[in-house]
């Protein structure tokens, strides 16, 4: 459940880059740990965010966690489907459950993120 071709953060977000923008979501592993998502707080389109900064909050029945931006940039779009269907984050975390689209400030920041292989290593280490 860790697709190739995406980049991952240690905070369990993924980013899929195409040109100057990147789409961000949380990983399958993260949604599993959180449980059924019941509410998503999305950032304002047009707002700016630094790498590692919180983009918003995800709530499950008995937990709430921030999700963070893997890179710095400006929010150009948010997933409008989520407020009505937060279950998409659980069901299709890499597709229809995406959260935010960012315009990247500095593509070089991507080099600090993990490949699928490295991310798998990270989460299997967590399991121990």
């Amino acid at each position: 459940m860790v697709p190739e071709g995406l980049l991952y953060s240690e905070d369990h977000e993924w980013i899929k880059v195409g040109g100057k923008t990147g789409r961000v979501g949380i990983t399958h592993h993260a949604q599993e740990a959180l449980g059924s998502v019941v509410f998503v707080e999305l950032p304002e389109v047009g707002s700016r965010v630094a790498a590692g900064e919180a983009l918003g909050v995800l709530e499950s029945v008995k937990a709430a966690s921030d999700y963070y931006s893997p890179v710095s940039g400006a929010v150009v779009a948010v997933n409008e489907e989520l407020p009505d269907s937060p279950n998409l984050i659980n069901e299709e975390p890499y597709d229809r459950g995406w959260l935010v689209e960012l315009e990247l400030d500095d593509p070089a920041q991507l080099d600090k993120l993990l490949t699928a292989e490295k991310y798998i290593e990270l989460i299997s280490a967590d399991g121990k």
């Binding site: 019941v38 509410f39 709530e59 499950s60 029945v61 008995k62 937990a63 709430a64």
Partner: peptide, 13 residues
């Protein structure tokens, strides 16, 4: 319901 607003889950937030 909507307990994620509350102190026992959200603590300082």
């Amino acid at each position: 319901t909507l307990q994620a607003r509350e102190q026992h889950i959200r603590r300082d937030k």
